[in-house]
Structure formats: structure tokens, C-alpha cells
Design a protein around this nucleic acid. Sequence first.
RNA 1: UCCGCAAGCCAAUCGGCCGCGGGUGCCACACCAGAAGAGGCCCGGAAGGGCCGCUCCAAGGAGGCAUUCGAGGAAAGUCCGGACACCACAGAGCAAGGGUGGUCGAGUAAAUCGACCCGGCGAAAGCCGAGGGAAAGUGCCACAGAAAAUAACCGCCUAAGCCGUCGCGCCAAAGCAUUCGUGCGGAAGUGUGAUGGCCGGCAAGGGUGAAACGGUGCGGUAAGAGCGCACCAGCGUCACGGUGACGUGACGGCUAGGUAAACCCCGCCCGGUGCAAGAUCAAGUAGGACCGCCGACGCUGCUCGCCGAGGUCCAGGUAGAUCGCAGGGGUCAGAAACCGAAACAGUUCGCAAGAACAGCUGAAAUCACAACACCCCGCCCGUCGCGCCGCGAAGCUCCGGCCGAGCGAAACGAAGGGCAGAUAGAUGGCCGAUCAACGACAGAAUCCGGCUUACAGGCUUGCUAAGGGA
Length: 128
Amino acid sequence: MPALASSRAKGRRLSRSTEFQRVYRQGRSKADRYLVVYSFQRDEQNPARPRFGVSVGRKVGNAVVRNRVKRTIREALAELEDKVADGLDYVVLARADAAELVEREGMHGVKNSLRELISAESESDDAR
RNA sequence: UCCGCAAGCCAAUCGGCCGCGGGUGCCACACCAGAAGAGGCCCGGAAGGGCCGCUCCAAGGAGGCAUUCGAGGAAAGUCCGGACACCACAGAGCAAGGGUGGUCGAGUAAAUCGACCCGGCGAAAGCCGAGGGAAAGUGCCACAGAAAAUAACCGCCUAAGCCGUCGCGCCAAAGCAUUCGUGCGGAAGUGUGAUGGCCGGCAAGGGUGAAACGGUGCGGUAAGAGCGCACCAGCGUCACGGUGACGUGACGGCUAGGUAAACCCCGCCCGGUGCAAGAUCAAGUAGGACCGCCGACGCUGCUCGCCGAGGUCCAGGUAGAUCGCAGGGGUCAGAAACCGAAACAGUUCGCAAGAACAGCUGAAAUCACAACACCCCGCCCGUCGCGCCGCGAAGCUCCGGCCGAGCGAAACGAAGGGCAGAUAGAUGGCCGAUCAACGACAGAAUCCGGCUUACAGGCUUGCUAAGGGA
């Protein structure tokens, strides 16, 4: 199977509303003050590369702010891709104060926050 | 130079690496899907259906490489208008409801634009105004104030009328005096002056207010008043100027508060919903018609009926997909040309219902859309030209420089590059350099024309007033 080079490419994103719903309803979640990470085991037998969805609500700010938050999260995810288990769908939800984190700490702040959330989640996964 | 005003423009810049979305070209077939071929296996009584790998193809998806394009002046608010789509009515008028409102011109239209008029603000440049009608009618005008529309609290005035008081006259009567002529006298009466009151007159002044029944001055008056006059403002008529809003002048009669984004009257305009409009295709599930090989039941058999499973076709249409949708048009319509006609006569599959193909006419018989190619137009960029500066006696071009800001290409004419189009929604990240030094407001979502609102800093041009210099 030809690897899609980047997690930012179209095929590696969650695209359908039903896919988001599935992750929200059936997945597990972990959160801090700024971000919420949902994850869902898609197919246990045939683990593919993980897929990502980003959701930024209106509470975060106006369109320019939302765009900036979304792009920053995508960049951070692309750099964290190696540390993420295959076969999972992730949704990163930006909470209302997320713009504050992006403005203050930039991409690195978001990356650190995501790394902690994702590893905490996989630990609880192992404990299961 | 500085204060201000107007118009236009920019929206940090440059380089490297990595990345995202669209278009185009090429590669590739290891993945998914598909076409063809031969083969194997499974389910089924059969018709038929399914699965597996192999060979081959390249015309899809995903992928790789290359190339090209990729947020704004407001993309925003969704406030007007138009295109487009569907729905409704399918004629006209009236009514209702909503909108709109100086004039002329531009514009498909607009709560649009330009010029002008009028009013307000400003010293000016200039800015602001939904700016028809208040003598059609109704209503309202807070607080304050006597009063908010046929005004009278303080105030001013007693000219006319009435009632007093006092002074001074006139004077019939009584009375007194008398030279008998008349004189004095004076109640009542009457005249006049002063004064008090009643009945009144007035609207100048004060006070209240956003606004108080035109303003200023002179005359006039008891006091006053358009009562008279002059000028001003307003109204009407006429004349002149202007396409017109309106302006100017003359004359007239002397007065009419404000408010219509209060009701209302007048003129003009107006179906509704919005691209989540809507169109096309279409799994699955349920539905309808038909077929009658198989099974069950009615009936032991045949026929028939019914049920089940199976098959064929059909309609509607969910998930989903595609289009709408990326500047516009031409080549691009034609003899039936959007699902056709004729025929059931061909071939294949099927028990059959039927399906697919072929044949005839024809360039084409699924069409349309899309795409490629070429051409034309529009817009943008840059070129060029207009333009600016210098030199000079003289510059559209003709010698040199600047293209800083901007504009133009209507006609003729030259060559080049470009035109965002996503659908959990692309236009970004990191590093380095520079600055007026960390860069405002802010992110396309059907398109177009406006309006409004937000906004750091900077640039260009023109203008006003003041000061300075020549």
C-alpha cells in the first residue's frame, strides 16, 4: 500500500460527518484546558495509518482566529505523527480558550499539549 | 513649514526549506475499482448467482514526478438592488400591506452614482440632510410656565361707560342782602381737573421654555398694537432668467407656531422563498406490475387459485455521488437529433416477462453536459504611450533622466503572461535578512452592482486659512 506522505493530506483527514459522530460517540477522550482529544479504534485486524479530524467551534473566535488555530493544530499533528498508534481515528477539538494557547506558545505549545494527551490516552488503552 | 479638508493608492518586504487545495502534462499498475480472456471452486432442482487467484488493458480513484494558479479593501454586516433557480398566480382594475420621496442626468435596478438647488454647520477648503404636503382633517408638544394655539401671571393704561371722594367753575330752588336793576349763596344738577373702584383696553417689557401668535426703527396712542410708514423675513400675484429644483425684481394684502422616521393625504415602486435554491444519477430497505421452473396449502392426480422463495421490469427516492461552480462567447447545428422512427424480420441471453446488440437513414443514433483544439471579446499585470523633471531660444515624438503616484488603450494597430473554486471546507509552518521595528481590521463559499460598519501605519496629488520668504 502506498503510504500517504503526510497526515495533512486529504485522504488522511476525517471527512464525513458520520465519521466524526462515530469518534465522538464510541471513542475515548482526554482533555486539558485548551484541547480535547477523542480517539476511536477503527479496524483491529487491519491497522491503517491513523486519521485525524480537527474541530474548531465558533466560541474560539472569528474566522481568522479559527483558521489559525486549526492550522497550528494540523502542523503539530504532522510532527507528532510517528508517536501515534496505527488504526485509530482521532478528533482534536479546540476549546474556547485554545486561541490563547496558540497566541502565547505557538506551535510548540500545542505540540506539547497534544503529546501529553495522546500518550495519556494510549496508557489507559494499555491498562485496559 | 504647520493646522485642516478632499480624492486616490498600499496593506510589511526579500530569500531558502517543508507542506496544503485546484488545473494541466507525464509515469506507474504494488493498492482499490473497472474492461477483456482463459481457468478453478462454492450455493441452487433449475434459471441463475457468488468467490478465488492468473494473464492482459489503461480509459477512473488513490499514488509519484513536473508545471502553473491560489483571500479582501472591506472577503465582514446580510442592509438594498439585479442575475439565476424553484413555488404560486397565470388577464385587468381596485383595495390591503410594505417600500420610497428636492431637480436634472446616468443606470436593468437600488436605501446607487454625478452635477445642481434649498436648509444647517464651519473662518475657509469643505462637510451634513429619507429634503413632497402642516390654508384637507385628526392627534401630540415632556419639564418649566398664566398660557403650547383663538394666551394673559407679573406688568402697562384709565380714553369711552358706570359709581364715589376732593378742588375749581356754571347754575334752577330755599335762604340772606338789596339802591329792586340785581348781588351773595350754592343742596340737587351740570362742566372740568385730580384721585379711588367697577366694567374694561393692551400685548411693548419681565419671567418660563426647544418653541410664546413676525423682527428692528420712526410715527402714533390712555397704554399699546401692521394701527401707519421704512427696511428685513415670510405669504400671494405678475414679470424676467433657468430643461428644472429655484433665483432676481416689481406689486399686493399685512401674518400664517412646531411636529408627517404621529395617523393621514399625494406621486411613484413592489408576488414568495433563497445555491442547504435547484437539476441529474443512485446502494440499501420497503413498494407496484408481470413470469410460473421449484416448494407448501386448498385436493390423491391434472387444471386453476393462493402463499413463500426466486426471476424480469418499473416508479419514487434515503445514504452517497455528480452538476449548479468559476470571466463570457464562437466554431456548435443539422434532415427525427433529449429519452427518436420503423419493425418484432436479424444475433445473443432468458422457461418467460423482458434485456442487450446489430441493421436502415445519416458525418453522428444514447443525448446533453463536460473536455481538447483554434478564434473573438472583457478584466488584471507588465510593455508601450500619455505624464513629470533637467538641459535648451524652442520639446506630443526628435537630447538625457524618472517612471514616484495615477490614468488610458472607445476607433486603428503590435507582441506577451494571467483569470481562487474548497465541501470537516486549500492559500500555511520553520529558518535567515531588512524596515518607518514585531505589522491594524480581518478569511472567499452561487455570481454581480451598491450601501454601511471595522481598521496600525504609510504614500501620492490637489485645495483652504495662518505665519514666514522672494
